[in-house]
Design a protein around this nucleic acid. Structure first.
Lengths: 208, 208
DNA sequence: AGAAATATTTTTGTATACATTTTTATTTTT
DNA sequence: AAAAATAAAAATGTATACAAAAATATTTCT
């Protein structure tokens, strides 16, 4: 696994303190490489929103914030509905089966946060890809990546797994029935519901 | 000006061929620095969507494509409306004056594409910033940055300057009248109109 | 001749060393 | 004692050198 992914993992698993600047030498020792690949990783992670600037030259793991969680789910709701709309008429049995298969894997226990996040994205991507809109899909993928940082709360304190599973099935069912309007509306609700739940929870917390 | 910005400029001014891989040594000679800062620049430009992968390890300037132009304007329409909605009730005379001042500068002749792109974004940002939604704003800013790559067409072949100016004034007027619904609807139209025009134009072109 | 395999060249990736900048600590001044 | 200025340190930024990988050219085989 490359350095970038390792740093992502460590951010997700709270192995890297938030708010304090990340030191390149420290990281290079931690991951057993020189500073150059560390710099590379930090640069792209910053560009992708995984890290934020600290002072004039440093970067840090940004604190989790309800506002960010809310923004991410609002944006996802808008843009994923757009994508589903564009994809809808092209979704065939093939894509539905693919999504169903992924949904089944998501139901398993013992998945890491990252695995869960990736599977969840693959589920949606299976439906969106036939829209054939690379730019839109790339942006939405980025937002989903970002959202993974908050996944720990959704699958941890908030018992979300079962409901999420159910909603995935419901979505597929609506698509199969060619009920475009209802499917898009449901997707929006699916994303926004999770966002509202998460946002409320984070607002209530004091220490993070 | 830093390397990253210089490369952006050269992309905008078609100084770097599209579709062919960018060679790090070539760029380092061109800009008179070693490969390290070049690599840094390429990495973040790739993460920001200014460059796309080429082969297994290289990057290239991606071809312009009507689909990307359309996606960018669709996304901007959705997300900027969201931002304006959140900002609306907090927009005071101060922000309106700020926007008006920027709008005046935009009317001048002899601005470079980048200057024009930045001013246009500053205009919108003057209104959005009171929404106080850093994440949403960051993403929208990225989309606007992307859109700059297509600005040459809007201000070149398509005579867009005058109309854009007029639309900016109209938007400010609607906000001043506290007509939230109309203002948001108008903003959406403003963004989508430009997008449709641009997309149609690009679809008609063969060689780019 | 065309495809597969191999060798060559080119290019990217990484480490180390040094320069520059930023941050922190110390000293000086009011 | 607080603020400003200065000095020390620690950190980032960049260059050069080398290693690994990728792309290209060449050779070999069918």
């Amino acid at each position: 696994m490359d350095i970038k992914q390792q740093i992502k993992d460590d951010i997700l698993n709270n192995k890297l303190a938030r708010g304090v600047p990340l030191r390149q030498v420290e990281l290079s020792q931690r991951y057993g490489v020189s500073r150059i690949p560390i710099r590379d990783a930090l640069l792209s992670l910053k560009a992708e929103g995984w890290l934020s600037p600290h002072g004039k030259a440093g970067v840090m793991v940004p604190a989790l914030h309800w506002k960010e969680a809310e923004d991410l789910s609002l944006m996802r709701a808008e843009l994923e509905c757009l994508l589903l709309d564009m994809a809808f008429d092209r979704i065939s049995e093939k894509e539905l089966n693919e999504a169903k298969f992924i949904s089944l894997q998501l139901d398993k226990e013992g998945l890491s946060l990252i695995e869960r996040g990736e599977l969840n994205w693959h589920f949606h991507q299976a439906l969106y890809k036939v829209a054939d809109r690379p730019t839109l899909q790339r942006v939405v993928e980025g937002l989903n990546q970002q959202a993974v940082r908050y996944l720990g709360f959704q699958y941890g304190p908030l018992g979300y797994r079962a409901e999420s599973q159910h909603q995935h099935e419901e979505l597929l069912s609506l698509i199969q029935k060619k009920n475009k309007y209802a499917a898009i509306k449901f997707l929006r609700q699916h994303i926004e519901d999770a966002g509202v739940l998460l946002t409320k929870y984070l607002k209530g917390m004091t220490d993070f």
